[in-house]
């Protein structure tokens, strides 16, 4: 079997980050998180429930779009994924645009459910493949959702990790800082520093992100590729070609 591709590595890392969750939800336009969640469910022996928005097979909602948000507010969703056109060192995310709102030289689609779900879901994984200074900025231009909140604000949820195409960070909510946990094979701490616009904690020795073992890789290539194809056929085709 060939080595894991970059995408397969990300899928395996996501599955690891989701271990122990009872219910994971995956939002729209999220093929890699979707594949990672389905892998985590497989590894849990079916103990984990996964809801993939946009899927027919992996979505049990019958009350429309509002059901996801009601479940989140009740604590019935343990993990979710958010991204951002900009992400800063305090884990603030911006899904709206650059510049001085509403005059946004670059406008993105909008905040979706982030301004709510980030507050309520305990294990939010920030996922953005592009790891550049354009994305990882000192301070976001617009806060779609803040990394931390003032004392007194109802906030059972928040950032748990930041996964990019270069590495994996954990987030310390008390200190409001990211810590570099591992660097993906083929990349370096220096490369991550060069491409990150914010300060982060970095131990003297940063391990390499562990590659998926043979059985995990086989599961991704066979079972998971088939499962995710129902929602993301083009992504599944690319996964096969990699």
């Amino acid at each position: 079997m060939s080595e894991a591709s970059g995408t397969e590595l990300l899928v395996a890392v996501i599955a690891r980050l989701l271990q122990g969750c009872a219910h994971v939800a995956v939002g729209a336009s999220s093929p890699i998180p979707g594949a990672g969640a389905l892998l985590a469910r497989l590894q849990s022996g079916g103990a984990m429930r996964v809801t993939v928005l946009g899927s027919q097979k992996n979505n049990f909602f019958t009350s429309g779009g509002v059901e996801l948000f009601d479940l989140a507010a009740q604590g019935r969703i343990d993990a979710f994924f958010l991204g951002g056109g900009q992400i800063d060192g305090q884990a603030n995310i911006n899904l709206v645009g650059t510049g001085d709102y509403p005059d946004t030289p670059v406008r993105w689609p909008g905040s979706f459910g982030s301004a709510y779900l980030y507050f309520l879901i305990p294990r939010v994984i920030l996922f953005r493949e592009e790891h550049t200074r354009r994305v990882m900025v000192p301070k976001v231009d617009f806060i779609s959702a803040p990394g931390v909140s003032d004392a007194g604000v109802h906030r059972p949820g928040g950032p748990h990790a930041l996964l990019t195409g270069l590495g994996l960070f954990s987030f310390d909510r008390a200190r409001c800082r990211f810590r570099l946990d591992s660097v993906h094979p083929g990349h370096s701490v220096e490369e991550i520093r060069d491409n990150t616009g914010f300060e982060f904690d970095c131990p003297a020795h940063v391990p390499s992100t562990p590659a998926p073992d043979a059985s995990t890789l086989a599961a991704i290539r066979n079972r998971i590729r088939g499962d995710i194809a129902e929602t993301y056929p083009q992504f599944a085709a690319r996964l096969a070609a990699a």
Binding site: A73, V96, S111, A115, Y116, L117, F119, P146, V153
Partner: peptide, 13 residues
């Protein structure tokens, strides 16, 4: 009433 949103620029605007 609705949870979340406090501290966001969505609410501020």
């Amino acid at each position: 009433p609705l949870r979340g949103m406090i501290g966001t620029d969505v609410l501020r605007h």
